[in-house]
Design a protein around this nucleic acid. Structure first.
Lengths: 156, 156
DNA sequence: GTCGCAATGTTATAAAGTAACACACATGTC
DNA sequence: GACATGTGTGTTACTTTATAACATTGCGAC
C-alpha cells in the first residue's frame, strides 16, 4: 500500500458499496458484519480471522468468540464483499464487489500485499483447460506467490 | 479414479521415479519419507497430514507424532514429489515430478479427486498478467473447484 | 572410531476452524 | 400489543491443522 493511497477513503468507500449492494439484494449487513468488513479492510492486506477477532475484542472492548468472526466472514464471502486467500488462511476485501469476482490474486511474499486482479486471459485459459478435460468450473482460485514491483526494487 | 486404473502399478511407479530423482539430486529419500510418499499416493486423492499420520500409526504400528509427517511432507514438497492443495489443506502425489511443476489442479467437489494439469495457456496467461503489473512470479497456484466429468454425469 | 550434521523422536503448544445449543431481536400476523 | 417465526448472535466446548524447542539417533567423511 503506497503512501499516496487514501486508505480512509478507501475503507469508507468499501462500506458504502457494501451497504448499497446488500440493500439491493435484501441481504442484512448488520452492525457486526459491517464492523468485521471494516476490520478486514483496515490493513488493506490479507488478515487472519483471529487477527480480526483481536481487533474486535481490543478496539470494541467486547471479547468475541471465534465463531462470531467466522460467521460474519462467511456472510461477507457469500456476498462477494470479501475474498479468502487459501494459501494464507486469510481474508481480504474485494476490490470490485458486485462485478464478477474471479478470485485472482498476486500475493507478495515481501510485503504481504495481495493485489486482486481480474485478468480475462487467465480466466478464459482456465475455463478452456477445464473444458478440454470435461471439467465443470465452479470456483476458480488463482493465488500467485512472488514479489510485487516495489519489493523487487528494495530487495530484503 | 477409475476401475481401469492400475493403482498399485501407479504407486510403484511413483516410488521408482522418486528414488531416481532423489539419487540424481543427492537428496535423501529415507525409509520414512519414502513411506509417507507411498501413503500420499495410496488414495490417489488429496489426503490430510493427519490422515497420513493415522495410516502410519495403524499400518506400521508406531505412534508417530504430527511433526514426523509434516517434516516428511515438507521434504517431499521441496523435491516436487508431492503438492499441497491449499484450499483443502491436503497433499497429493505429483503426477510428473522432475518436470516443471506448475501447480495447477482441477479439484472435484463431488469425488474429491484433484487432477493435476500443466496447461501452458494458463501458465503463460498468469505470467503475462503478472508481468503487466510488474509482479515477479515465484510460485503460481491454481486450484479450480468444480465437478469432474464423471461426477457431472451421475449428479448427486 | 569419532566428529559433524542431517534426520528423527518427544513433548508441548499455537493457530485455524466447527458443533451444539441457548438467547435476542426484528418482522409480520392476529 | 401479544405472539409466532426465523435470522442473527452469544457461549461453551471441541476438532483439525500446524509449529516450536530441545533431545536423540544414525549415517557419512575422514
Amino acid at each position: 500500500m503506497s503512501a499516496l493511497h487514501d486508505h480512509t477513503h478507501c475503507i469508507a468507500d468499501a462500506l458504502t458499496r457494501a451497504d448499497a449492494l446488500c440493500t439491493e439484494r435484501g441481504a442484512r449487513l448488520t452492525a457486526l458484519r459491517r464492523r468485521v468488513l471494516e476490520l478486514v479492510w483496515s490493513s488493506h492486506r490479507p488478515r487472519g480471522a483471529y487477527a480480526i477477532l483481536e481487533d474486535l475484542s481490543q478496539q470494541d472492548g467486547k471479547a468475541a468468540a471465534p465463531l462470531t468472526v467466522y460467521r460474519a466472514l462467511e456472510f461477507l464471502v457469500e456476498q462477494g464483499l470479501v475474498h479468502r486467500i487459501e494459501s494464507l488462511n486469510a481474508y481480504v476485501g474485494c476490490a470490485a464487489p458486485g462485478a464478477a469476482h474471479s478470485g485472482q490474486f498476486l500475493v507478495c511474499d515481501g510485503c504481504g500485499d495481495a493485489a486482486e486482479i481480474d485478468d480475462p486471459g487467465v480466466g478464459s485459459a482456465i475455463v478452456a483447460a477445464a473444458a478440454e478435460r470435461g471439467f465443470h468450473v465452479q470456483r476458480p482460485t488463482v493465488e500467485v506467490r512472488g514479489l510485487c514491483k516495489s519489493c523487487q526494487e528494495k530487495p530484503r
